[in-house]
Amino acid sequence: MEKIKKHLNWFIGIGVVFLLALSLSLFNYFKSEENMPITSQLPEMNEPQVKIPETPIKERKKETKEVQVDIMVDVQGSVKNPGVYKMRVGDRIVHAIQKAGGFNEQAELRSVNQAMKISDEMIVYVASKGEEYEVQRGEENNRSQTSDVININSADEALLQTLNGVGPAKAQNIIAYREEHGPFTSLEQLMEVRGIGEKTIEQWKDKINFQ
């Protein structure tokens, strides 16, 4: 009986050791599964990348660089510093006169169209007071003159006298009114000038414009 008990205890001991070993092996196996990185189980997904082409630096500089062209203008007459000056395309006569130091005391301001755009090799001449002169006109005024239509807001004394019934005195009255009140805008406004009436403007309606 004692032998049987010994053998039974021996078998039980072996069984306990086996169960412990089995439990330890299973524990280590599941623990290693839990610690395994998830990313290693999934295939990598590479998203396509869209590349935006960049404009080369040299081309960007070309796009932002403004084109500037120099022109030469000869400013003469009643200005403080007559001479040839370098100007920019798009500048006007007033800018050229400023480059020449401005008008002197003898300058006849009405002898130049200060709003006119300048061009390369152009001569800007400022007449002196009492000197005969002819105002340089822009392209629009030249078209008006060739079509026998006068711009009443820019015409000088000599050109105004080509209108029917206008002499030196009446031409000066038109210019004086223009300088004091600004450009004319209608035929009726011309009647405010001394010496001009309804009959006069009736004769002028096809001979003048206001632009």
Rank of each mutant, 00 (worst) to 15 (best):
residue 74 D to C: 01
residue 110 R to F: 11
residue 18 F to V: 14
residue 62 K to G: 00
residue 40 S to Y: 07
residue 36 M to I: 01
residue 210 F to H: 08
residue 197 G to W: 10
residue 157 E to P: 06
residue 202 E to N: 05
residue 65 K to C: 01
residue 29 Y to H: 14
residue 128 S to E: 11
residue 72 M to F: 11
residue 63 E to R: 15
residue 151 N to L: 03
residue 47 E to W: 10
residue 208 I to T: 05
residue 104 N to H: 04
residue 135 V to L: 01
residue 139 E to A: 07
residue 80 K to C: 02
residue 39 T to A: 03
residue 17 V to D: 01
residue 23 S to F: 11
residue 148 D to M: 13
residue 183 P to L: 00
residue 22 L to W: 08
residue 3 K to A: 09
residue 27 F to N: 11
residue 112 V to G: 09
residue 162 T to K: 15
residue 19 L to P: 03
residue 48 P to T: 06
residue 119 S to F: 13
residue 85 Y to V: 01
residue 65 K to T: 04
residue 94 V to Q: 12
residue 95 H to K: 14
residue 158 A to Q: 07
residue 197 G to C: 05
residue 76 Q to K: 15
residue 161 Q to M: 15
residue 26 L to C: 00
residue 1 M to Y: 06
residue 11 F to H: 10
residue 8 L to Q: 14
residue 205 K to A: 02
residue 127 A to P: 14
residue 23 S to T: 10
residue 20 L to W: 13
residue 22 L to C: 04
residue 75 V to D: 09
residue 116 M to Y: 09
residue 19 L to Q: 11
residue 16 V to K: 13
residue 62 K to Y: 11
residue 70 D to N: 11
residue 74 D to P: 00
residue 187 L to W: 09
residue 73 V to L: 02
residue 56 P to A: 03
residue 86 K to E: 13
residue 203 Q to P: 02
residue 85 Y to M: 06
residue 22 L to P: 00
residue 116 M to S: 02
residue 115 A to W: 00
residue 62 K to R: 14
residue 33 E to N: 11
residue 183 P to S: 03
residue 192 E to K: 14
residue 47 E to V: 07
residue 107 A to V: 05
residue 130 G to L: 00
residue 167 G to L: 07
residue 71 I to C: 04
residue 100 A to G: 06
residue 72 M to Q: 10
residue 160 L to K: 14
residue 59 E to R: 15
residue 104 N to F: 06
residue 150 I to P: 03
residue 43 P to R: 14
residue 1 M to D: 08
residue 6 K to C: 03
residue 92 R to G: 00
residue 19 L to D: 03
residue 59 E to I: 12
residue 202 E to G: 08
residue 140 E to F: 15
residue 128 S to H: 11
residue 172 Q to R: 15
residue 67 V to T: 12
residue 141 N to R: 08
residue 99 K to L: 12
residue 35 N to Y: 10
residue 157 E to L: 15
residue 169 A to I: 12
residue 169 A to K: 15
residue 172 Q to M: 05
residue 34 E to I: 08
residue 160 L to V: 03
